[in-house]
Structure formats: structure tokens, C-alpha cells
Amino acid sequence: MGIRHGRATVSQSQELVRVITTIGTRHPGKDSAVHIAEGFLPVPHAVGWAVAAAPFVVHGVRATVRQVREHPEDRVLLAAAGAFTFILSALKMPSVTGSSSHPTGTGAGAILFRPPVMAFLSTVVLLFQALLLAHGGLTTLGANVFSMGIAGPWVGYGAYAALRRLRAPLEVQVFFAMALADLATYLVTSFQLALAYPDPSVGAAFAKFATIFALTQVPLAVIEGLVGVVLFRVLRSI
């Protein structure tokens, strides 16, 4: 036995087709339906959502800075938390429909690290997603931070806190925190799109966007909730 030679030559056009069709298997975070892509929002909307998100992010940065001034070692821990959020959102989740989908992970983040910190970490995560995965955008960053970094974590955290007060089992708390955080993110995104393209009215447009994205997002939210239950079960057993 020796070295084997011979390799098929692939034409450029075949190569192109192959690159485009296989990128999803090699590239994390190919397609999620929840981040508004670059160029999708008119200038007033892009600016408006950035202004709306800014106070939360600034508050998050302040909270984070205060925390690491007191505990310098938390710098690495918080970075690990952010990296975890990014990785989770870049992983392909099992899906019912067969289309690939990614968890938002903001529900778990909100429970583990609290919403203010998540506002800051999510901003960095979204910036990384825009620049490392061409996922989301820069002019749409404010809108995406609002839906994924603010609305999602607060709704998730709210559900978690309310169910905790009601003494619901941990599994139930986690399921609803994760699922509702995901749902809230997608509903806010639908609302943002409806506001930008109110055709003919914001209400009708919201119903339209919400319905179309619901096809992928509702099963996804349920699965994300179930994944959360497994996640916290494993964490508790360690």
C-alpha cells in the first residue's frame, strides 16, 4: 500500500453552489429568524430603537463596571457568561420542522446573571453576531438589543420571579422563563417590523409578521423551554 493519488477537479460554479449550500453545516449561527438584518429599518426607526435601548445598556454597563470594580476577578466570569450566551445562540437546536434554528438563550442568562447584566452582555453578543456571523446588523443593533437584550430577559426574569413566588417547581419556572423570553423577543421583533412597515395599519401588520414568524418561533420557544429544563436539571445535579 502506498500513497494514493487523484482528486476530482471541481469547476468554479460547482464550487460556488457547494459553498453556498454547505455553509450552514460549517458556519455557526446560519439562520435565526429573530434578528433584524442590516438595512431593514428606516433611519428614524433605527435611531429610535437605539435611543430606546441606550438607557438599559448604559445602566447595564454601569452595573457591570461597579461589580468588577468591587470584584476584579468577576471580569473573567462575566466574560465567560457572555461567551456562553454567544455559543448557545450559535448552536443549532433540535427542531420539529427540520429547519435549523437557534435558541436565544436570554431566559437562562436572565435567571443566572440578572437582566441588567444581560442588557450589557447581549449588546456585546449581538455586536459579535453581526461582525462574526453577519447575523443581525449595525444600524439595526438598537432594535435587536431592545428585543433580545432587554425585552426577552425582563419577560423571562419576570416569569421566573412570579412562578417562584407562587412556589412552582423549578422545572416550571425555568420552562416558562426560557420559552416566554424567546416568545417576547420574537413578538417585539414583529412589532418593530410592523411599526416600520405599517401596511395598512400597525395592528394588521403586526398580526401578519407575528403569524409568519410564529411558524418557526412558537415550536422553537417550546423547545427552548424544554432545553432549559434539562439544562437546569443537569446543573442542579452537579
Binding site: 460556488l16 453556498i20 455553509i23 439562520d31 429568524a33 453577519a134 412597515y197 401596511d199 395598512p200
Partner: peptide, 29 residues
């Protein structure tokens, strides 16, 4: 190849979003 592949990454969202905008709900203006 990288350039084209990177541009194709947000394709799912863009197509869903654009088709949704093309589709109107309710009486036409």
C-alpha cells in the same frame, strides 16, 4: 467564495421579511 457565502448568511431572515412586506393584510390602500 467567502464574500458570497457571508452575504448569504442573513438570507433566511431577509427573504422571510421581504416576502412579508410584499404581502398586504386588509383592504388595499
Amino acid at each position: 467564495r467567502l464574500w458570497l457565502a457571508a452575504l448569504a448568511l442573513p438570507l433566511t431572515f431577509v427573504l422571510t421579511g421581504v416576502l412579508s412586506i410584499a404581502l398586504q393584510v386588509g383592504p388595499p390602500a
